[in-house]
Amino acid sequence: MARLDWYIRANLRPRHFQLLVALDELRHVGRVADYLNITQPAVSKSLSELERGLEVRLFERDPKGLIPTAFGECLIRFSRSVLRELNTTRDELRHLKAGTTGSIRIGMLPVAAPALVPRSVILLKEEAPATTVVLVEGNSDSLLPMLQEGKLDIIVGTLPSAPRHTGLELQPLHPGEAIVAVCGTRNPLAGREKITVQDLAGYPLIIPPPDAIFREHVDAIMDYFDMPLPAGAIESGSMTASNTFIRDANAISFYSQHLAQHYSRVSGISILPLKMPPAIVTAPIGVVWPKHVEMPASTRLLIEKLAEVIDSVFDTGVEGQGL
C-alpha cells in the first residue's frame, strides 16, 4: 500500500491521464497513437510502465480491442476528474490574463434554451459584465458526456432520472409544469374552443426521440388517451425543426406549457384546448453538475440568477389544458 501511494504521488503525470482517457475512448493502441501523435510502441510502453508501477492490470487485451479492468475504470475516472480540473484552471488563468472575471460553459436542454437560461444570463451579466458565457444547446445524450468530460460546467433543464445521474449533483429549481397539445396557427384545429383526442387523428405527429427525457411524458399521455403511435411519426430532438413541421405540415405535438406559450408568441404555434391528464407533468427543472468539483464563483452566481427568474418563466398553472 505504501508503494502504491508513493507511485501515485510521485510518478503520475498529466500525460498518463491523457493516455488512460484516450485508451478508454478509443480502445485501440494504433488509434490512440494517432490521436496523441506518438508511436504505437510509446503507447504500449507507457501503459506497461503504469501497470508495473501500480502493480495492477489496467486493461485486458481482447481481439476487439482494450477493455478496462476494475482497476482501469477507477484510474480512468480519476484521470477524467484531474483533466477536468486542469481545463478549468487553464480557462481561469486565460480569463485572468485577459482581465475578465471568469467564465461559465452552460449546457441547455430544450426546455431551458428559449427563456430560462437567456434571462438568467442577462441578470448575470448585469452583475458580472466581464464574465464569459458559452452556451451549448442539445439533448441529454449529447450534453451529459460533455459535462462528464469537463467541456461544460453545468447543464440546465429537465433533471435526469436516477440511472442517468450517477456521479452528478442535482439541484431542483422547479417541480415541473403542465403539458399541452400544440398545432400550427394555420391548422384547421387552431382556434377551436374545444377538441377531443379523436380530432387529432389523421394529422402528422411529432414526438421526442426515445432517449429524450421528455419522451416518457409524451408516452404517458399517449397511453392515457389510448393513442397508437401512427406510422410515419417524426421523432425530433430539435425545437426549430419541430416548429417547422408543426407550422408547415399541419403536424401535432406535445410541448411543456411555457414552451408552448413562448412559441405561440414568436413562432406560429397554437395551443390546443385538449383536456390533458392533470397528473402528467414534466420532470423537475434544475441544474446538474459533476460531483466533487469545486464550483467557480461565476457558476454559483448563475444558479442564483436561475433561481430568481424561474418562477416568472415557468407557470405552474394549467392554462391551455381545456375544460
Rank of each mutant, 00 (worst) to 15 (best):
L200W: 04
G138Q: 13
V313Y: 01
A10T: 15
I104K: 01
T100N: 13
R9E: 04
V180S: 04
T158E: 05
K275Q: 07
T88K: 09
V133C: 06
S253Q: 00
P210E: 07
E85H: 14
A22K: 15
K64W: 06
Y35Q: 14
A181F: 00
V197W: 13
R247H: 11
N187K: 05
T185W: 07
V288T: 07
V288G: 02
L50H: 15
M108L: 12
G202L: 08
K64C: 09
A70M: 05
V156C: 03
H217V: 14
G30A: 10
H165L: 10
K45I: 07
V32W: 02
D211K: 15
M227I: 15
M108F: 03
I106H: 01
I213V: 10
L54Q: 08
S48M: 11
Q40F: 15
Q257W: 07
I122H: 13
E25D: 07
R84D: 05
T196D: 11
G138S: 06
I280F: 13
T88W: 10
H16G: 14
E216G: 13
L20K: 11
S161L: 12
D153R: 02
G322S: 05
F225C: 12
D211Q: 12
G320P: 01
Q171G: 04
C74E: 06
Q261T: 04
F59V: 11
V281T: 09
L306H: 09
F17M: 12
A130S: 08
A220V: 09
R300V: 08
L36G: 04
I38A: 12
V318R: 03
T299W: 00
N243A: 14
